[in-house]
Simulated scan of single mutants.
Amino acid sequence: MPATRYTIASKVLGSAMWFWVMYKAKEEGPVVLGLRHPWDGHGHGHGHGAHGEHH
């Protein structure tokens, strides 16, 4: 049977992995599934001014 520290480490690392997978699915899921194009807006303002305004 594995030592307790390995069991705890595997649970911590496994939890971190699943947190990361779910976070990335939330952020990039629609693009991966083809529901949104990567160049479409993603809801964050970039401070470029009004549409059609060129500097």
Rank of each mutant, 00 (worst) to 15 (best):
D40K: 12
H37Q: 12
A3N: 14
V12F: 02
G52E: 01
H37Y: 04
H42K: 13
G14A: 05
F19W: 12
G41H: 09
G47R: 00
H55R: 08
L13D: 14
F19Q: 08
A9G: 09
G29C: 03
G34T: 01
G49N: 03
H37K: 08
S10R: 11
F19N: 05
Y6N: 11
S15H: 15
K26M: 13
P38W: 01
G52V: 00
A9Y: 04
H51N: 08
L33G: 05
H48L: 04
E53N: 06
W18V: 12
M17S: 15
R5T: 13
V31S: 04
A3C: 11
G41K: 08
G41Q: 06
K24D: 15
W20L: 06
V31E: 07
R36W: 00
I8P: 13
G47H: 01
F19C: 10
H46F: 10
D40V: 09
G49T: 01
V21Y: 10
K11T: 15
L13K: 01
A25F: 05
G29A: 10
Y23H: 07
H55N: 03
W18I: 14
G45M: 03
A9F: 02
K11H: 14
H37L: 09
V21N: 08
H55K: 11
R36M: 05
H54Y: 01
W20I: 03
R36L: 05
M22Y: 07
G45E: 02
G43N: 05
A25C: 05
A16V: 15
G14I: 03
V21T: 08
T4R: 11
M17W: 11
R36Q: 04
T4V: 14
E28L: 15
M22H: 11
I8C: 07
P30T: 00
V12C: 07
H54C: 03
K24V: 13
M22F: 05
H48A: 06
H42N: 12
T4A: 10
G34L: 03
P30M: 03
T7H: 15
Y23L: 12
S10N: 12
L35F: 00
A16E: 15
G14H: 02
S10K: 12
G43M: 02
V21L: 07
S15A: 13
H44Q: 08
M17N: 14
P30K: 00
V32M: 12
S10F: 12
H46E: 04
P2H: 10
R5N: 13
H54K: 00
K24C: 13
G52I: 00
G45I: 04
Y23G: 00
P30Y: 05
R5G: 10
